[in-house]
């Protein structure tokens, strides 16, 4: 991780409540914190002119979906994101998936779950339960897109599609 990545990561507020979706009493509090951290992270990204994803969840906060996008040669490539919150969260991170890329790259597990670097799991384990979804995005999906998307474009696996205007 370079200093820029560390700075981005350390600017995401840490979470306080250790609770997974099975803990009926505490989960709503944790969920609020998840949203607060995500809102802050998206705002930080906007300030840094690096707005790159949106997420929302079902009302229980157990199923998440949204979009991420990546600019390459001034063209915007957009992908759907989805993941479930495992019952072991926040001891284990959510497994972020980009289903439309399933089967297109070896850097994915079944179902389009992204393959994380060797540093992700130790980092998560060392910082649990203070890391949340925003940290998983910054540490997991962000670097994955930066490496894999240019590669997939150069291989012709993904091509630019004219899409509707930017969602902001």
């Amino acid at each position: 991780m370079d200093d820029k990545a560390k700075k981005t990561l350390s600017a995401i507020p840490l979470l306080k409540t250790k609770a997974g979706p099975r803990e009926k009493d505490l989960w709503p509090q944790r969920l609020k914190e998840e949203y607060q951290a995500l809102i802050q992270y998206v705002q930080n990204n906007k300030v840094a002119d690096n707005d790159w994803f949106r997420l929302e969840s079902n009302k229980e906060g157990t199923r998440w979906f949204g979009k991420c996008w990546f600019f390459h040669n001034q063209l915007k490539y957009e992908f759907d994101i989805e993941f479930d919150i495992p019952i072991t969260f926040p001891s284990t991170a959510p497994e972020i998936a980009l289903p439309e890329l399933d089967g297109k790259t070896a850097k994915m597990y079944r179902g389009g779950k992204i393959c994380l670097s060797d540093h992700f799991k130790p980092l998560w384990a060392r910082n649990a339960p203070k890391f949340g979804i925003a940290h998983a995005m910054a540490l997991g999906l962000g670097p994955w897109l930066a490496v894999e998307i240019p590669d997939l474009i150069s291989k012709g696996v993904i091509t630019y599609k004219e899409k509707s205007e930017q969602s902001t």
Partner: peptide
């Protein structure tokens, strides 16, 4: 596979 040292507490801005 890795260690989780007790000497390295996560600090920083926390959710308000």
């Amino acid at each position: 596979a890795y260690t989780v040292p007790e000497t390295c507490p996560t600090q920083g801005p926390t959710i308000e």
